[in-house]
Amino acid sequence: MANMNMIQALTSAMDIMLGKDPSVILMGEDIGYFGGVFRATEGLQRKYGEHRVIDTPIAEGGIVAAAIGMSINGLRPVAEIQFADYIYPGFDQIVSELARIRYRTAGDFFAPLTIRTPCGGGIRGGQTHSQSPEGIFTHVSGIKVVMPSNPFDAKGLLITCIEDDDPVVFFEPKRLYNGPFDGDPTKPAVPWNAHPKGQVDEGYYTVPLGKADIVRTGSEVTIITYGTMVFVAAAAAAAMNLDAEIIDLRSLVPLDVDTICTSVRKTGRCVVAHEATRFSGFGAELLSIVQEECFWDLEAPIQRVTGWDTPYPHAFEWEYFPGQARVSMALKTVMEPA
């Protein structure tokens, strides 16, 4: 076991897979010689060579398309899109091609491609470096969508994704790269080495897709969340002295419906929290499922905590960000007696 931040854990996952499987290659903008703008591929080109860790032109559509071509020719590419906000030039290749190659060829061809991309706000990135577009991808049949919230999960999930024969979009909440974040930007940053999930096995291990993590067991309310909001939600519930059960989904597709429903049936109350915008967001899907499956167990209407339905504004980052105050309001509402 070693202390790792989320970046180091991701690097370790890629390092292990490059070493283990000669069909694994990395590609993306600035990822080779330079090691990536967030340093996720630091040292890997030196270790595995320019033909395994490949710098690309600034053309996300080309990166995704070329990676698809490689993946149907027996490689397992891990393509980095430098920011999730830049993924849209590759969107057609992801939606119209990557997601459906297995389907349209009745399983004769498949594309084991993992697309890694940093997402989310809280780093003063403005509207072009802060987006959380995961919900757009969960709406597409045929791609898996994953978002870890800590170094341990990040490494195990990424290894699973690289080994998976289906395509995955792997979102990395970049505000969590260097430490858990409770939503209060005025507090000093907390590094991962003080957190149990910052203790990471240096070797090979996997974390399965479709298996949510119960971060905290509780009896009064279920908070379903993922990514950056895991720690914000936990801090808000703790500040209110609520015995909340906190579920970190880890993978949105496939989704662990059983863990969600078992928890809501137990607590009878539910809050859904994500950083992404509200309207047609992934939270709406979670609400629908809980309503369909657990309606008679609910004591109160399900609440949603999200970013506002605006672009992510540079100057009003913390007014936009769904911090503890917004979570607390939702918790308060859901805890009100009927």
């Binding site: 033909h51 398309a65 070329a66 698809i68 071509g69 490689m70 020719n73 490689l75 290749q93 091609e97």
Partner: peptide, 13 residues
């Protein structure tokens, strides 16, 4: 561009 990626893989291999 997929064909190009396929060819890149052939060259890598």
């Amino acid at each position: 561009p997929q064909a190009v990626g396929w060819a890149m893989a052939a060259a890598i291999k």
